[in-house]
Amino acid sequence: MVMEIVCPAGTPASLRAAVKAGAHTVYCGFADETNARNFPGLNFDRDEMREGVKFAHDHGAKVLVAINTYPRAGAEAIWHRAVADAEKSGADAVILADLGLLAYAAKHHPGLRRHLSVQAAAANADMLNFYASEFGVKRVVLPRVLSVPEIAAINAETEVETEVFVFGGLCVMAEGRCSLSSYATGLSPNMNGVCSPASHVDYHDDHGALSAKLGGFTIHKVGADEPAPYPTLCKGCFSAGDATGHLFEDPVSLNAEKLIPQLVKAGVTALKIEGRQRSRSYVAQVVRNFRAAVEAQAAGRPMPEGMLAQLTEGQAATAGAYKKTWR
């Protein structure tokens, strides 16, 4: 069986590009605080969502709508409307994280398939089975803190489908359980759908070095000739005790293409590519490569080699927790 490739679409153009490049499934969100990539200029209005779903369906692809921030107290109607509109648009599933929103969707939209977002950080089989029995969740996007053997162990104990990230940005903290960004900037993934937001980034020249601040806190400094990674808080350069460096995580991004055969064996249903904020040409290229890889895997052909190295945008790539060198 060919593994399902689940691709990001930040815009209708990206959705069409991903579908044409061979995405089995595309995920996207409405242009508001209901989704965890609430960036300026991104995401879909209601008409675009309907048209996007139709385009995908006409080409044999599915659409998942991410409604995966935590609804604000007093404003839950915004999130409830998003679930209703996702169903109306013909979407194949919604991706949810909040307990209350899952309960709401299960009660009011029982025919709409529910996936559990990575933002719910469901990291063991008991939790997957709990979400399945309580809310009828059919698929769980696993947090990026698990190794391949741990993923295999989870799949051995659950009927729920699992989807894992294979390419793009990498959270090192348990997703949906991190308020580092709001501590520094007031805006967080859980509440606002943003992490280390560009609106709070400030670069300045510090005696020939480029210093990047987030919410007034220096995240890193690089020499004039060095590449300057985006100042994502957990990948910053700090000091503690006698050490100075990337104390939490290096400025790396995830590339688990080489692990596809192992992930198949581990019982994973779908491979997810991060990056709704990326360009459509980036998305199309990543999709083409991953589609080729899963087709080769399913046909028993050798995997294409190192195809995506140039797309990690000047950053080193890592297999992340899947190969737990730090365990």
Binding site: A174, C178, E249
Partner: peptide, 21 residues
């Protein structure tokens, strides 16, 4: 002190160049 994040990785171990185990 506020609990801001929890991870699968141990940062004290990383700081001392040790594995989590």
């Amino acid at each position: 002190r506020l609990p801001l994040a929890i991870s699968g990785r141990c940062y004290h171990a990383r700081l001392h160049k040790r594995t989590k185990d």
